[in-house]
Design a protein around this nucleic acid. Structure first.
Length: 608
RNA sequence: UGGGGAUUGGUGUAACGGUAGCACGAGUGACUCUGACUCACUUAGUAAAGGUUCAAAUCCUUUAUCCCCAACCA
């Protein structure tokens, strides 16, 4: 159903990272490829400790997009340096999600490859030994608690009694740590930088800690694991990354990123003639503002909590902002990409209205999704003057239905299919009012001032009466149709113009033919724009207090029998209702549709 | 309290000393076999105060507000 041609990606917006790359390329700062083009190599480096979400999509689109734009390469790399939090399940889901988003790390033209930080552990260890030998690192015996106490504060420096430990001792202890001779928390390897630095990141940061734990990739080969700062710059260096793009909170870490590489490069030369061999590649770190969305939680910690506390059905609950949740909800990858491009890339933190994301989805699906008719909350309409066969059964007519009037290639001439009409149907309960409000263009009894309306692609009808149950609720509408309006067009006069017009067109399904299906209607998960916003006295509040109790509504809809053949993942526009995707929970003969997003509705807005 | 950053219409984002523009939203209207889509018009902004300059969103000074940093997380 979905083709890229039907939705050309708009020209990408230029931002400050483009400026940096353009300047680097002009100066050939990162050298050239074999064909002479300047090198550009980016990466997306998730820790496999959770599922990816829309915020990661911004980073993925940025990094892969830059690689594409500058004929560069893009890597997917797992920053798997903490076995305590990481799992294979997350690795698998991340690979799937990144591919689904179209960031082709494993295929030309941008594919740079799939990598694991854990595959570099041996090299990292060698370099750590090198730093000890160069006098830039030492083994510290302080416990985490003691180290924290000795961290100092804004005014006072940190301290460690092990800072001047002889190099030989540190070398021996580091090897013992690696060989499993020491328990968790007993020792760390620390960089010897500046215990009085106003930047806490530089107060002799930990490079390695002892963690006796199984690792999803390296198994039990290691019991010391590198910290982020020590590992990340080396991973980038080993992969030849030119532009290491991360989020704003790593700004304080940038000096350390450079410090480590510079210390390794001490005593190294371009031709390898120095005592320590060849220089290693020194990438550039660039920070940008992460995505924030109104009414959306985007922290792995809190998303994990929602999964664990079963506030949602799982990481892929269609209300979740995870990539897997959005996919299941029906957000196309191309729409997410368009969104990420539209919102821009800057260094100022901002919050995007969730409506922007939904608009990107509507824009895309409007062009791409075939139409169908379905009724969410049915109200029966009986057409009293509908003809019957000799045996008393109603006549069944087959009418034309346009598959997608927004199809750019063919417009209204696009494919048509047949839909059955037999005089008895369901319309949306909302499309009928016993006493019509002002500006209500839909069905209402003629006696109450109701107008003639069009049943889409079928006939003009007028409501002539209602049937009510004991409680006074309308259970059925009696109507008459005009046979001269077959197909939904009014008879035309000699000038070719229709002789009359109707204000309202409503959707319907044939009561004799429609099939039932479950429709899941979603609203935002949180009722407040800033979940967990501070209370009236500035006190902290649990973000779960802002949960929207009405974020999920299930209804039994009546749908066009044509949809019986729909498969999981298929997306349709149910006319006037929104876009719906067939959910994984569907079973043969029992379809489940997720409403991806509703159509804009200026009538419901006008009512308010 | 130290250090590092950020402030342009309701929201997001351009303008790199020389006409404050674009998008989204909102409003109005047109069109319409989806109250959708599309189209037209309207709306509204340089955080504050000083200074430099022929000229300041842009440079300088001060102030205000917000974000990040004292994990053996990333």
């Amino acid at each position: 159903m979905t083709t890229d041609a039907s939705n050309p990606t708009p020209a990408p917006h230029h931002h400050f990272i483009d400026e940096i790359i353009l300047a680097d390329n002009a100066a050939l700062r990162w050298g050239q490829n074999k064909d002479g083009t300047p090198k550009v190599h980016t990466r997306f480096p998730p820790e496999p400790n959770g599922y990816l979400h829309i915020g990661h999509a911004k980073s993925i689109c940025l990094n892969a997009g830059l690689a594409r734009r500058y004929s560069g390469h893009f890597n997917l790399r797992f920053d798997d340096t903490n076995p305590a939090k990481e799992e294979q399940e997350y690795v698998d889901s991340i690979i799937k999600d990144v591919k689904w988003l179209g960031a082709n790390f494993d295929a030309p033209p941008i594919g740079g490859g799939l990598f694991y930080a854990s595959n570099y552990f041996e090299q990292m260890y060698d370099w750590a030994v090198e730093l000890v030998k160069k006098g830039h690192a030492y083994v510290c015996d302080l416990s985490a608690d003691e180290m924290s106490k000795r961290r100092g504060d804004l005014r006072t420096p940190a301290s460690s009694p092990f800072r001047d430990r002889p190099m030989a001792d540190s070398l021996r202890l580091l090897e013992e740590m690696r060989n499993g001779k020491h328990p968790n928390g007993s020792h760390t390897l620390r960089a010897k930088i500046d215990l009085a630095s106003p930047n806490f990141v530089l107060r002799d940061p930990v490079m390695y800690r002892v963690v006796h734990e199984h690792h999803h990739n390296t198994g039990n080969r290691w019991c010391i694991y590198p910290m982020y700062d020590w590992a990340h710059c080396l991973e980038d260096s080993l992969e030849g990354i030119t532009h290491s793009i991360c989020t704003l909170e790593f700004r304080n870490n940038r000096p350390l990123y450079h410090w480590f590489i510079e210390r390794i490069n001490e005593g190294r030369t371009a031709d390898g003639s120095g005592p320590w061999g060849k220089l290693i590649h020194h990438p550039q770190q660039i920070e940008f503002a992460k995505l924030r969305l109104t009414s959306v939680i985007l922290s792995k910690r809190n998303l994990l909590r929602m999964v664990q506390e079963k506030v949602v059905s799982g990481w892929d609950d269609p209300r979740m902002p995870t990539i897997s949740g959005l996919r299941r909800r029906g957000f196309p990858a191309a729409a997410i990409r368009n969104f990420c491009d539209e919102i821009g890339v800057t260094t100022q933190e901002s919050t995007i209205d969730l409506g922007r994301l939904e608009n990107s989805v509507r824009d895309y699906l409007n062009k791409a999704a075939p139409r169908a008719m379905a009724v969410l909350k049915p109200l029966k309409v009986r057409i009293e003057n509908w003809p019957r066969n000799a045996d008393g059964t109603p006549v069944v007519e087959m009418l034309d239905f346009v598959v997608n009037p927004e199809d750019e290639e063919r417009g209204l001439e696009s494919a048509r299919r047949k839909i059955a009409f037999a005089g008895e149907l369901f319309i949306e309960r909302e499309d009928f009012m016993e006493v019509p409000a002002k500006k209500f263009f839909r069905l209402a009894p003629v006696s109450a001032g109701g107008l003639e309306v069009r049943l889409r692609w079928a006939y003009f009808i007028k409501a002539t009466g209602v049937v009510k149950d004991a409680s006074g609720e309308v259970t059925e509408v009696i109507a008459t149709y005009d046979p001269a309006t077959r197909g939904g067009d009014a008879p035309k006069g000699p000038d070719g113009q229709p002789l009359r017009k109707v204000k309202g067109t409503i959707h319907w399904v044939s009561a004799l033919h429609a099939i039932p299906a479950e429709a899941r209607l979603f609203d935002r998960l949180f009722a407040h724009e800033e979940p967990g916003h501070p209370g009236p006295n500035g006190e902290e509040r649990d973000f779960l207090l802002d949960l929207n109790p009405h974020s999920l509504e299930k209804v039994t809809a009546r749908i066009d029998p044509f949809l019986a053949g729909a498969r999981v993942g298929d997306t349709f526009q149910f006319e006037r209702l929104g876009y719906f995707r067939v959910d994984e929970d569907s079973k043969p003969g029992a379809l489940v549709f997720n409403r991806t997003v509703s159509l804009k509705d200026s009538w419901s807005k006008a009512k308010e």
